[in-house]
Design a binder for these strands. Structure first.
Lengths: 215, 215
DNA sequence: GTCTATAGGCTGATAGAC
DNA sequence: GTCTATCAGCCTATAGAC
């Protein structure tokens, strides 16, 4: 045996946790909390299923740990926009691009968010809920700002921020199904995302713009 | 015993099926297919759980029967718009209003649709899939029409129809969570829907409108 | 046609060896 | 820290009484 007691049987704690989190993130996003079996997670991570209880204290805890990490990531990315002193137009644009960027890096986020929203946050810890709401409030705040500044037309900011978030979340959350329907894994379909972001930003900007406008 | 052999123990076939479908629709929408237990469905419907297997041939069949019925309803409602000879502007408006109307009558539809879309249609029968796609194609077709006719600006109709559907589906699918967050059941919050529909229609119309426009 | 009781299988969690 | 073996509980489906 080596003097450092590194047996090939043992991995370090960190790598096991990492493997479990990675596999679980994918599976939870794809099949939801109830649709995912701990067996699958363990097998997909290449570790024993008992490790889930050992390292995380159960399936539910693992789920919430992933959710918390993902939300933290989102929170960091939007931090700059939250405290930005730019115009509403610009902040809205920044948010859309930042969201798209986040969704590209963390494809599981929109899916897990939407799943929780659908079931009324059935599986998430109480203290995680405010994190969700911050994300929503940020968007509504930007629209309110635009209305106050007179650059946005007088929409209802509450319903409108839901429209925008709906477009964003839905687009990225449905990626899997779109790939499935296309038959192929759509390897070079990435431009799709750029077009989506561009068109959504443009449509929202023009749709919200104040002005002499039409009826 | 009565000569008509109507014991109070027995309900008729139709009412049992109806009760099961009603209870199951609500639960499937709220908790998803995997998150719903047949015990719950039966209890909520006030019938024995064995009735699910008896009347529908299992949980999955029940689920698909509900999905099929809901999609049929949607199909009927959109039939007129599909073959309408109106302008794209008008057809888009009609679609948004019809969708909102449908979602108000059948709150489970948007939730079940989005759940299936998320998991890549994991639980649905093969032959039900085209029904989903028709709904999507209808919206994309309307946008294409507007671009052809020159009343819509030159967006990518594929990504844009996803934006619109995302807004619609998300808004109605998140109703439960919004009520939960509000603390109260939001009895008189129905005007919210009207404002949403009005603002979404206006934002899309203005956002898509062709014209001298800005950059 | 409806019900009760139960079968048969799978799930998430744990105790204890290594 | 990791693994094997195993448990208790729950799930869906079915057989058979009424």
């Amino acid at each position: 045996m080596s003097d450092k007691s590194i047996d090939k049987k043992k991995r370090d704690k960190a790598s096991t946790r990492e493997a479990l989190i990675g596999a679980a993130t994918e599976l939870f996003a794809e099949r939801g909390f109830d649709g995912t079996r701990v067996d699958q997670i363990a097998q997909s991570a290449g570790v024993n299923k008992a490790m889930i209880s050992y390292h995380f204290g159960g399936k539910k805890r693992l789920y919430n740990e992933i959710l918390a990490a993902t939300l933290n990531d989102a929170h960091e990315r939007f931090h700059e926009i939250r405290y930005s002193k730019e115009s509403a137009d610009r902040r809205l644009r920044d948010f859309i691009f930042a969201f798209a960027d986040l969704a590209a890096t963390q494809p599981a986020l929109p899916v897990m968010v939407i799943r929780e929203v659908l079931s009324g946050g059935l599986h998430i810890d109480e203290d995680l809920l405010p994190r969700f709401l911050e994300l929503f409030k940020l968007v509504q705040g930007i629209i309110d700002q635009g209305i106050r500044e007179g650059t946005f037309t007088n929409v209802n900011s509450y319903v409108t921020h839901l429209s925008l978030l709906g477009s964003l979340v839905f687009f990225f959350a449905t990626k899997q199904m779109r790939e499935l329907l296309a038959g192929s894994p759509l390897p070079s379909r990435v431009p799709e995302v750029r077009e989506f972001v561009r068109d959504l930003e443009r449509t929202m900007r023009r749709g919200l713009a104040a002005g002499p406008a039409e009826a």
